[in-house]
């Protein structure tokens, strides 16, 4: 734990795998830039790895004033304890006021380990971050410029705003895909700071024996339009119309968990709390009831069209356009309408 340090920087954990920065690291740079400007301090990225020097320009272009680089051949693949050692050592040395991580498999493994070691607070899976003065009703004290950590809780039925008034750094993991990716500015200048961290033998207790990564076949996050099907599609064969609709729009195929669990389509297509969070220009939800877990992954979409035979389906509450009826009739009509649209 460090004391409240109002001059402290705002930090982003720069997650990378196989020499490529994760999207979430760059998304966080955009948000952290805003937060740092708000409190008037520098924004820095912390970049542990092996041969990662080449990634510093990208972080700076996305908003970092500084990049702390920790290179060690033992940091090639992410492992909890050595990475936690890096963050903890640098936090104790530089005393940042805020540290944010992606709520990715890596970030959600790393951040709690760091929080426990530092005895600092940590809020998981934030969907928004902001800065504001917070008055503590009990003591009457106003804490200036605290990090508001905003997240859905209780299965998405409530939105909670969490603060850490006293024990800093203020830390949060942020859900992937909810912060807008900043426009990179290749002309931005920034400082690269090489850091050395002392490891202990026990930091390497977990040995990586085998490692496999799936090639990225489904690009849900990057899709401008998504056609998504749910349990209401009824079968794997029935799901073909969803693929056809996506193809007609030039978009991607999404799915609810019910569709994935029933084997209509594979898990990589799942949208929602335990799938991908998306914010396309258009999201068409067909035969999806719209439980909170599903909505958590798509309600930020710019336009939502819901097709459901149940006029009471919760999906309609987040839809801009609702079509009440049988998807087996409606989707083919939609495909025709899209294919026959006048081309400029």
């Amino acid at each position: 734990m460090i004391d409240v340090n109002r001059k402290g920087e705002v930090w982003v954990f720069a997650e990378q795998e196989d020499g490529k920065l994760s999207d979430i690291a760059l998304e966080l740079c955009g948000k952290a830039r805003e937060l740092a400007d708000h409190v008037g301090v520098k924004m820095a990225a912390v970049l542990p790895g092996t041969s990662v020097r080449g990634l510093t320009d990208e972080l700076i272009a996305h908003g970092a004033d500084k990049v702390y680089v920790v290179e060690d051949r033992r940091l090639e693949h992410y492992q909890t304890q050595p990475y936690a050692r890096v963050i903890c050592s640098l936090v104790e040395k530089h005393k940042p006021q805020i540290v944010v991580y992606g709520a990715s498999a890596i970030g959600r493994d790393l951040a709690p380990r760091v929080a426990s070691a530092l005895r600092a607070g940590l809020t998981a899976d934030c969907t928004d971050l902001d800065i504001a003065d917070v008055r503590d009703a009990a003591s009457g004290v106003t804490h200036k410029n605290l990090l508001l950590q905003i997240r859905p809780a209780f299965g998405g039925n409530i939105i909670a705003t969490i603060v850490n008034p006293q024990r800093w750094p203020q830390m949060a993991t942020v859900r992937e895909g909810v912060m807008a990716m900043p426009e990179p500015d290749p002309k931005r200048g920034g400082e690269v700071v090489e850091e050395e961290v002392e490891f202990q033998e026990l930091d390497f207790a977990v040995k990586l024996i085998e490692r496999h990564r799936e090639p990225h076949t489904v690009n849900l996050k990057g899709a401008r339009t998504i056609a998504a099907g749910g349990g209401g599609v009824g079968s794997k064969e029935g799901f073909r119309v969803i693929h056809e609709l996506a193809a007609a729009m030039g978009g991607a195929v999404g799915a609810s968990r019910a569709a994935v669990d029933s084997g209509y389509v594979n898990k990589a297509h799942q949208v929602g709390q335990t799938g991908t969070t998306v914010r396309p220009a258009l999201y068409i939800a067909a035969g999806i009831s719209g439980t909170v877990q599903h909505r958590a992954g798509m309600e930020e979409s710019a336009k939502i069209v819901a097709i459901n035979d149940d006029p009471e389906a919760p999906i309609l509450s987040v839809a801009h356009y609702g079509i009440v009826g049988d998807l087996n009739q409606i989707i083919p009509m939609m495909i025709r309408a899209i294919k026959e649209r006048p081309k400029e």
Partner: peptide, 13 residues
Amino acid sequence: SPTKVHRIQAIVL
């Protein structure tokens, strides 16, 4: 507990 709940908003459908 370093974290404090500042505000809770219920989601209204």
